[in-house]
Simulated assay, not measured.
Amino acid sequence: MLSDDELLRYSRQILLRQVDIEGQLKLKQSRVLIVGLGGLGSPVALYLAAAGVGELHLADFDQLDLTNLQRQIAHDTPSVGLHKVDSAMARLSALNPLVKLVPHRAAMDADTLGAAVAGVDLVLDCTDNFAVREAVNAACVAAVKPLVSGAAIRLEGQLSVFDPRVESSPCYHCLYGHGTEAELTCSEAGVLGPVVGLVGSLQALEAIKLLVGFGEPLIGRLLLVDALSSRFRELKVKRDPACAVCGSGRV
Rank of each mutant, 00 (worst) to 15 (best):
P103Q: 06
A59T: 01
G114Y: 08
P164K: 08
L98G: 12
A110L: 03
A152T: 03
S168K: 11
D111P: 00
F162W: 02
L159C: 11
S149H: 09
A107V: 12
A138L: 03
Y176D: 05
D76Y: 04
D128A: 10
V136Y: 01
P97L: 10
S187D: 12
D128M: 11
A142R: 14
A131H: 07
M108Q: 15
G179K: 11
S149Y: 01
L95E: 06
L175Q: 09
L101I: 07
V132A: 13
S187N: 12
M89H: 05
Q158P: 02
V148N: 10
F162V: 09
H83N: 15
A106S: 12
Q72S: 12
P194W: 12
V166H: 05
G81A: 12
A110Y: 00
L113I: 05
T67S: 15
A131T: 14
A139K: 09
V80T: 09
A59P: 01
P146F: 13
L64S: 05
A115L: 13
F130Y: 14
Q158H: 10
A115G: 00
G114F: 06
V117M: 13
C140L: 09
G150R: 03
A115H: 10
A110S: 14
I153T: 07
V136C: 02
H104R: 12
A74N: 03
C140G: 12
P164C: 08
G177D: 07
R154M: 08
S187I: 04
L69G: 08
L101K: 11
H104E: 05
G193M: 05
A189G: 02
G193S: 14
E156L: 02
A116S: 13
A94V: 00
H173N: 12
M89P: 03
A107E: 13
A139T: 04
L101M: 11
Q63T: 14
D163M: 04
I153S: 02
A90Q: 14
E188K: 07
L56S: 05
V144C: 10
L113S: 11
G119A: 15
E55M: 00
L124G: 02
A139R: 09
K84I: 07
L147F: 08
V85Y: 01
E156R: 05
D121T: 10
A138T: 14
D163C: 07
F162R: 06
R105A: 03
D128Y: 04
N68C: 04
A90T: 09
